[in-house]
Design a protein around this nucleic acid. Sequence first.
RNA 1: GGAGAGAUGGCCGAGUCGGUCGAAGGCGCACGCCUGGAAAGUGUGUAGGCGGCGUGAAACCGUCUCGUGGGUUCGAAUCCCACUCUCUCCGCCA
Length: 424
Amino acid sequence: MLTLRLIREEKDRVIKQLRVKNFEAEELIEKIIELDNKRKDYQFNKDNLQSQLNDISKEIGILYAQKKKDEAEQAKGKTVGIKEELQKFEDLLSSVEKEMDSIIVLLPNIPHESVPAGKTAEDNEIVKEGGKMPDLTVKKPHWDLIKEYDIIDFELGTKITGAGFPVYKGKGAKLQRALINFFLDQAEKAGYTEIQPPLLVNEDSGFGTGQLPDKEGQMYHITLDNFYLIPTAEVPVTNIYRNVILEEKDFPIKNVAYSACFRREAGSWGAHVRGLNRLHQFDKVEIVQIAKPENSYAVLEEMKNHIESLLIKLNLPYRILKLCGGDISFTSALTFDFEVFSAAQERWLEVSSVSNFEDFQANRLKLRYRPENEKKTRLAHSLNGSALALPRIMAALLENNQTEKGIVVPEVLRHFTGFDIITK
RNA sequence: GGAGAGAUGGCCGAGUCGGUCGAAGGCGCACGCCUGGAAAGUGUGUAGGCGGCGUGAAACCGUCUCGUGGGUUCGAAUCCCACUCUCUCCGCCA
């Protein structure tokens, strides 16, 4: 949620920058400013009336204490008109606030200056490519490999739950666990604190990170208790800081969490979603940082480097994209996507997305900090990134590392797996 | 799931039959005095939101906030209702 102050004070810049996201904001912003003016006016009137009323109440209290009962009764009469008037302004205020709340959440975060214009994923800017393309003598897609080596079973998942809930077996399960351990250990070495969050969250948390109210259909909802299954650990981990005022000494705040993630993916089933490419339940290691505004872009860079280092260590061919205005998410100011090349599918697969939300989430979360020697609090910046999402890494590893003898386990994972090749 | 108790500032804790209560007292913290330095002692300060308020900040003023939401009343931390959460006991259980 954009801050009112920004909307008021830098209206033109907001409108201009939102056009990069292909969002025409002028009308909404005019409406917001109009509502805000009304709001101030109503509150001013309300506060004044309340103040008068409070004064009379105090007088009555004193009169009673002095046993001047008649005068006290008389004073009560004076409150009637004021109370009616007060009620009127209270009603006006709450209706204008309600309308304001419903409109202000419609505005997306303004993109960073460096975000390129563009409509679709085609317009994303490739900022870096790395790693070496594998030279394969056999070239089977992972959905064939997992059957051949009996390591992941989709049919079994369908039997137990439904489509998109695969069962990992034997060395497949072990490889998955090795990846999780590797990612967590790497994050720990980079100074992140490991968190094991709840996998179900309440409505307030869903609102805090921006999943609710609009993306409701993307989450599994447990209606009986009104909980939502998390689509990413970002939700519970960032919500740790909901309604929090941080002190200077609390920084840097670096958290990492492994969790299962649940996504309904309603309506997004189609081409290119075979095998592990898109699932309803998958594992992910997520890094989350809370930063001071002046540091947040340096922090984003640091997170980006961390993610890149994982791909290098796994020896996967990768590229880094800066998302264009049309592809960047509603809440993000600047996002980099990481893709790995999956050699048998001959496709780039998105395995990570790292974003700076600036104060957009923080404003909803009421996540603030107190700068040194300042009385006033300020909104902090929040950032997160996948480090990394498991299934597509798994898909790329299986495809890129296949040989006639079996699937070769990357060097860095071997002490977690205890084996160096997956054979039939 | 059943029965009971409770929720007050960073923490502990008081708050009388509703009346100048944003809230005593203590601890902690910050700054100062004292000291050669420290401890002890001592003084001062110590919530957040919104509005007045304008280019930022401070000060000041108003208003709201004692788990959350509503109600009664001229006036609610205090009374009433609903909800949430915590604790204790019982039951169940990895």
